[in-house]
Measured scan of single mutants.
Amino acid sequence: GKELVLALYDYQEKSPREVTMKKGDILTLLNSTNKDWWKVEVKATANDKTYERQGFVPAAYVKKL
């Protein structure tokens, strides 16, 4: 199945390749080969529509579930 990670801290994206997350968010882990930056998929809701974004977050800010 898919691997999930838990956001340990809030993170505000600093570039278009990154994604914003809030502490407590559960994210889908896409790639953890880089030890510093993990690629995740974030589900977000805006205007009653759910959309998914993929991007990088600092590996130290998340932990595998």
Rank of each mutant, 00 (worst) to 15 (best):
P16Y: 08
Y11C: 04
E52M: 15
K14L: 08
L29H: 01
L27P: 01
A44L: 15
Y51I: 12
L6G: 02
E41L: 14
V19S: 02
V42G: 10
A46F: 14
N47K: 09
L65G: 02
A7W: 02
R17S: 11
K39V: 14
V40M: 00
K63Y: 08
V19F: 08
K49L: 13
L30M: 06
Y9D: 06
K14S: 09
W38Y: 06
K23D: 02
T28A: 09
L6M: 14
F56K: 02
R17F: 12
D48V: 06
E41T: 10
K2I: 13
V40A: 01
Y51Q: 09
K49F: 11
K63W: 09
A60M: 10
E18Y: 05
A44S: 12
E18M: 05
G55D: 01
L65W: 07
G55Q: 01
A44G: 12
L8N: 03
K49P: 09
E52P: 14
A44I: 15
Y9T: 07
Y9H: 10
L4F: 15
N34F: 08
L30H: 03
L8R: 05
V42Q: 15
W37G: 01
L27K: 00
E3N: 11
T28R: 13
L29Q: 00
Q54A: 11
I26K: 04
Q54Y: 07
K35N: 10
V57T: 02
K64T: 08
K35D: 10
D25G: 03
N47V: 09
T45R: 11
P16Q: 09
A7C: 14
W37K: 02
Y61E: 01
Y9C: 15
L65H: 05
T50R: 09
W38E: 00
K49E: 12
R17Q: 09
Q12V: 14
T45Q: 12
S15M: 07
G24H: 04
A59S: 12
A44K: 12
N31D: 15
T20L: 01
W38I: 04
V40E: 01
P16T: 09
L30Y: 04
K63M: 14
V40I: 06
A46R: 13
E52V: 15
K2E: 09
N47C: 13
V40Y: 01
T50Q: 12
Q54F: 07
T33C: 15
S15Q: 06
V62L: 15
S15E: 07
P58W: 05
R53F: 05
T20N: 05
L29N: 00
A7R: 00
F56D: 03
E52L: 15
L8Q: 04
W38M: 01
Q12D: 14
M21G: 01
E3F: 13
T28H: 09
W37C: 04
V19E: 00
V57F: 00
S32Q: 09
Q54M: 08
A7N: 02
A59L: 04
V42A: 13
K43H: 14
L65K: 02
V5H: 03
K23I: 05
D48Y: 08
K2P: 12
Y11M: 00
A46L: 15
V42W: 07
A60K: 15
W38Q: 00
E13M: 12
D36Y: 15
D48E: 11
N47E: 11
F56A: 01
F56V: 06
V62N: 00
Y9V: 10
I26N: 01
D48A: 09
E18F: 06
N31A: 08
P16M: 09
G24W: 06
